[in-house]
């Protein structure tokens, strides 16, 4: 019942200018029932290439480490079943596995995502109550719990054309961090306001709602509709709505 499968995997490192320098290498291994893409990668390491780089941890879609591009699509290797991959791969052609293309290459399937850690530090943290006497209902929790299910796999950032094609990493926070900002802005205990930063520093305006991020999110977060669009509405109300501006002037709004 077992059959062979061929993977065509990117192997290489960046050159001195940081440009990926490598080749696609074919590996053929035996496949067992129920395998996911990451299992095949592990088998290639165990049988052919111990030094092939690949990040992974939980192997259950909870940690967001094994992000890659399989047959050109951004996915978690641990949650992509070979059954489905073989269905979409034309017969007698290998399954193509590459690292995320929007991020700088480290080696083979591993990319450098330091940008995400640096950007995260610039977001003002939750400003909550000092007294431990809060109460809030599940309805309020529901609104942000969706955002908190983000596993920081960065597949949304990898797919977003603002990042992938235009490389605006310095001007645009990207879908992952709009999810984080939406979590803070809608958090039932937060008292801070980050809208000016969201508009100016984090470049929310660059997003033109193509929904690519939402489509690839392995946690199923409705990034566009539930995080980005509500943030855009808040920015509009705060900075561009004439009635709200008058209301603010006469003291009807904060």
């Amino acid at each position: 019942m077992s059959e062979d499968v061929t993977f065509r995997v990117f192997r290489g490192e960046p050159d001195e200018e940081g440009v990926p320098n490598g080749e696609m290498v074919d590996y053929t291994v035996e496949m067992d029932e129920g395998m996911v893409v990451l299992d095949v990668i592990h088998r290639i390491q165990a049988e052919h290439a111990p030094d092939m780089s690949c990040r992974w941890n939980c192997k259950a879609g909870k940690c967001g480490s094994c992000s890659a591009e399989v047959n050109g699509k951004s996915r978690l290797m641990c949650m992509t079943r070979m059954e489905d991959i073989l269905e979409e791969t034309p017969e007698n052609t290998p399954v193509v596995v590459k690292p995320m293309q929007a991020f700088p290459l480290t080696k083979d399937l591993v990319t450098d995502v330091q940008w995400a850690y640096d950007l995260n530090k610039t977001i003002p943290p939750l400003k909550g109550p000092e007294e431990m006497d809060w109460k809030f209902d599940q309805v309020e929790a529901d609104r942000v719990q969706e955002f908190r299910s983000c596993i920081e796999c960065m597949l949304c950032v990898n797919t977003c054309h603002v990042m992938r094609e235009h490389q605006l990493f310095d001007e645009f926070a990207g879908p992952r961090f709009f999810v984080r900002l939406a979590n803070l802005e809608m958090h039932p205990m937060d008292e801070d306001n980050r809208l000016e930063m969201i508009k100016d520093d984090f470049g929310l305006g660059y997003c033109n709602i193509t929904r690519c991020c939402t489509e690839v999110c392995p946690a199923g977060i409705n990034i566009t509709d539930n995080a980005i669009i509500p943030l855009k509405e808040r920015v509009v109300t705060e900075y561009y709505d004439p009635i709200a501006m008058i209301a603010k002037k006469v003291g009807l709004r904060k």
Binding site: P125, G128, Q138, E140, A141, V144, Q145, L184, D190
Partner: peptide, 8 residues
């Protein structure tokens, strides 16, 4: 207090 949202 630091932002965790447990079920209610």
């Amino acid at each position: 207090q630091w932002g965790a949202i447990f079920d209610r």
